[in-house]
Simulated scan of single mutants.
Amino acid sequence: MENMIVIMAGGRSSRMGAEKPILKVNGKPMILRVYEESTKVGETLVAISKNTPKTRELCIKEGIPLIETPGEGYVEDVRYLLKELGSFVSVSADLPFVKACDIAEVKKAFDGKTSLTGVLPLSKVPTDLRPVVYKGYVIVGLNGVGFEGEKFYELSNPLLALNVNTPEELKLANRIAKLIG
């Protein structure tokens, strides 16, 4: 069975103070940017929760298929989705520059069993970003979620290092979007 793509859009957005998925980058809500790229690769669901009522409204208005998670936290939501869907490819709703080719690459490499954590080598990350670094890599919000073990999967799109968690990162994303079109 082909792995479903799930856009994770049910978080609390506590650092942002607003629902991140509906915030606009270059005039378009991030959730729509990510969804458009994901659907080029395969069947896609948006995972929402009680934390994201405006995201739910937008998805219903746009005819985007949804799955409701408990909204207790990322790990809990991933466990819930594994139980409901089996293994899947996970894309964060706050990755405004994810491309279909990035998602396709992870989907192709994912065997449906061993989780793949999407990473970028530090050398590929623009120095003005302050991403999450673990074991010398930048963790990005694009993963294969499986049932046994985990390994890093190195990606090449440097803009995957920008996930929008703060108002400053949203401003940066808008500046970048204007530059790249």
Rank of each mutant, 00 (worst) to 15 (best):
L85Q: 05
G11W: 04
M1E: 13
P158D: 09
R33D: 06
N163S: 15
N163T: 13
S115R: 01
N143E: 06
R175K: 12
R175G: 10
T44V: 05
P167M: 03
L129H: 07
I180T: 12
K124Y: 14
L81H: 01
F110G: 01
C101T: 11
S123A: 15
P70I: 07
L58K: 00
E62R: 07
K171N: 14
T55F: 07
N174C: 11
K113F: 12
P29K: 01
K124N: 05
E150V: 14
G181N: 07
P21R: 02
L66C: 07
S92P: 00
S13P: 00
T52C: 11
V106W: 08
L155M: 06
D128Y: 14
L160F: 02
A9G: 07
K83P: 04
G144Q: 10
P96A: 13
S90A: 12
S49C: 12
G73S: 13
S14Q: 04
G144N: 04
V164Y: 03
K107M: 13
Y35H: 01
K107E: 07
E84W: 08
V125R: 05
Y134A: 10
N26W: 06
L142M: 08
V140P: 01
S38V: 11
F152A: 14
A47D: 02
G146W: 02
S87K: 09
N157F: 08
V89K: 01
L129R: 01
N157R: 01
I103W: 05
T44R: 01
L95F: 09
L142G: 07
I139C: 12
T166M: 06
Y35M: 08
V46R: 03
A173S: 04
P53L: 10
F88N: 08
L58W: 00
E19F: 11
L81Q: 03
K108P: 03
V98W: 01
S115A: 15
D77I: 04
V140L: 03
C101R: 11
T39E: 11
P70G: 14
Y80M: 10
N3E: 07
A93H: 03
E169G: 01
P70L: 09
K61Y: 08
R79D: 07
L45Q: 04
N163I: 14
K24I: 13
K40Y: 05
N163W: 12
N3G: 08
A161M: 10
S123R: 09
F97D: 07
I176H: 01
I60S: 03
T114I: 15
G73Q: 06
K28P: 02
L66P: 00
A104Y: 00
S49M: 03
F147Y: 01
E72G: 05
K24Y: 14
I103V: 13
L179Y: 05
L170V: 13
E19G: 08
P158N: 06
R79G: 09
E148C: 01
V98K: 06
G118L: 04
E150F: 11
R175T: 14
K20I: 15
G63Q: 04
L170F: 08
E62I: 10
V91F: 12
A161E: 07
M16L: 13
V145A: 09
K99H: 09
L160S: 06
L142F: 09
L162C: 14
T117N: 04
P21L: 08
